[in-house]
């Protein structure tokens, strides 16, 4: 009966105002303990960058990109770390936290009694995940520029790319969270996430995989994300980034729609 209708154009200002109030709640809930958790999300990709990008990179030497450009291994790995940290940050905030808020804190049971609708809750939570993810990306890009792994101008372009990656994974994570039954299910999610992290052209170019596997890898969201951010940060790959952007936009939209519809079913009993 309650089919989800995308907010009609007239309702957009009210809907975005209500979504913003959900984001605002998370700002109010920021407490000192939480800052520590936030810091860990920033440190993790740096550890990978130094240990593998710089450390292992010293053994690997330089790499030739498909476009013919020769870069250091650290410069090759850094954009992938940026993309995967955007993924991790967004997933942590949306899947884990959304699940907790919905199932254990029963937070949204209170929120739906106000004019705020499930779609706006989803949008607001995603907005918040992006504030967090955006901060990670900006900090990581600063490190990349300082280390000479990308240029300042390229970094400015890479930032919105990383934010888009966050949006896509945030929306997908939220949709997933509505299907999870218990905290145990998160182990599964973590395994999938780690597999993506290892095999999405992050540490090794996907061109080195066997053809069949390569196709599988190339349709995963993290591959598209890494491809996009690397293309932007290293000026490689021509116009193929347009495909990545389209892919991530579709993923964001689908994730949001599924999440909102599922939340509606779970909350409007």
């Amino acid at each position: 009966m309650l089919t989800l209708v995308l907010p009609r154009l007239v309702g957009v200002p009210a809907a975005s105002r209500r979504a913003a109030s959900v984001t605002e709640r998370n700002v109010a809930a920021l407490k000192p303990v939480y800052w520590l958790l936030l810091a860990s999300g920033f440190v993790e990709p740096l550890l990978y960058l130094f240990s593998i990008g710089v450390g292992v990179g010293a053994l690997v030497g330089d790499l030739t990109l498909p476009g013919g450009q020769v870069v250091t291994y650290a410069a090759f790995v850094a954009p992938a770390m940026l993309a995967s940290s955007a993924m991790t940050g967004a997933l942590a905030e949306t899947s884990f936290n959304l699940f907790g808020k919905m199932k254990y804190m029963r937070l949204y049971d209170g929120v739906i009694a106000t004019p705020v609708r499930p779609f706006e809750i989803a949008l607001g939570e995603l907005g918040w995940a992006m504030v967090r993810g955006g901060a990670y990306s900006a900090a990581f890009l600063l490190v990349m520029v300082a280390m000479g792994l990308t240029g300042a101008v390229r970094a400015l372009v890479a930032f919105p790319a990383a934010v888009l990656v966050g949006f896509a994974f945030g929306a997908l994570g939220m949709a997933l969270a509505t299907f999870l039954r218990s905290w145990q299910d998160f182990d599964l999610l973590a395994s999938v996430q780690f597999a993506l992290f290892l095999f999405s052209g992050t540490f090794v170019p996907a061109t080195t995989y066997p053809a069949a596997l390569r196709w599988l890898v190339e349709v995963t969201p993290l591959y598209r994300s890494v491809h996009l951010v690397r293309g932007v940060a290293l000026a490689d790959g021509g116009w193929s980034w347009l495909l990545d952007v389209a892919y991530l936009l579709v993923a964001t939209g689908l994730g949001l729609l599924v999440a909102a519809r599922r939340m509606e079913r779970l909350l409007y009993r």
């Binding site: 709640r25 109010a28 809930a29 407490k31 804190m105 029963r106 937070l107 049971d109 209170g110 009694a113």
Partner: peptide
């Protein structure tokens, strides 16, 4: 409307 539900669903993080 003002709603006071059967089970308190106050925000424990606030």
């Amino acid at each position: 409307l003002g709603v006071c539900p059967q089970l308190d669903n106050l925000d424990p993080e606030l």
